[in-house]
Write a protein that binds this DNA or RNA. Structure first.
Lengths: 140, 140
DNA sequence: CTTCTAAATCAGAATCTTTCTGATTTTATT
DNA sequence: AATAAAATCAGAAAGATTCTGATTTAGAAG
């Protein structure tokens, strides 16, 4: 369902439904946590052993522009990617030891307090919020 | 004053007050916006033309561990650094076109709303919050 | 002031992520 | 089945950051 909707959205924008693109989407849909480009590439290699790494990056950029994918940065020196499902706006709780992530539904922009401190002449487009620390397993 | 306090703090931790380290601190104190490692290096070269880039990174890591410096990521593919002055906790407003930044004094963790949504068994150590968009000059 | 040692620096290579280039292949339409 | 635009592949390139091994230096001790 999600998968078909996204394919539909891609088609309507004249994007070709290549095998690699389909596989990337399936991987993102299956993923339980945000994945690094490298992790996505490794999984795709199993099905398409001759794949170019570039294909992963090109498609992730495309999907990000189409707002189908979110690019996240958790101070790990590389980005991670997750599906951007409407009606599921969230932020992340990130464990600094194991790298585990959990969704945080509360959003700083929802209360008006913060938005009120932004100058009126600044046009907000996006925002990021992450909480770092140690999960139950990793804290001492 | 700020400068002397930091030198004092470094000394007390048995860190040597090398010329390069002093210069780096002066640059950060003078800076009006967070600087990329490359920008810091370029400024240091004027005074120490034989400097190694590595020295910049090594010292920034050290200062970050000592909580004298904040490392920021504004989705530009590289980090930026700023002094971490106590009593000046803030986040950033970042212009996606010109790269300009402004301080945002409101903090998502101040209201209890968000903290309440974090599981009790997660030990929070740090957090990040950035608002992206277009500044007065850059919006159409 | 001189000696000494750990810490810091330099120079350059290495690593890693991400982007680019040019040739080839594929999707989807005609 | 032919076609053109889009996408892919393979490998190089760019850029940030980290590492290595030899050399230098800050600060302490004599």
């Amino acid at each position: 369902m999600i998968y078909e909707n996204i394919l539909e959205q891609l088609s309507s924008q004249k994007c070709k439904l290549t095998l690699q693109r389909r596989e990337l989407l399936k991987i993102l849909i299956r993923a339980r946590t945000p994945l690094a480009a490298r992790e996505i590439y490794d999984r795709m290699l199993k099905k398409y052993p001759n794949m170019s790494f570039d294909t992963v990056y090109r498609n992730l950029s495309l999907l990000q522009e189409m707002q189908i994918v979110n690019r996240l940065e958790f101070q790990e020196g590389r980005s991670r990617y997750e599906l951007n499902l409407s009606q599921d706006h969230h932020h992340h709780l990130v464990c600094l030891k194991c790298g585990g992530t959990w969704k945080l539904r509360a959003c700083p922009l929802e209360g008006l307090n913060i938005v009120n401190t932004v100058p009126e002449d600044f046009k907000i487009t996006t925002h990021r919020f992450e909480v770092f620390g140690y999960c139950r397993q990793c804290r001492d």
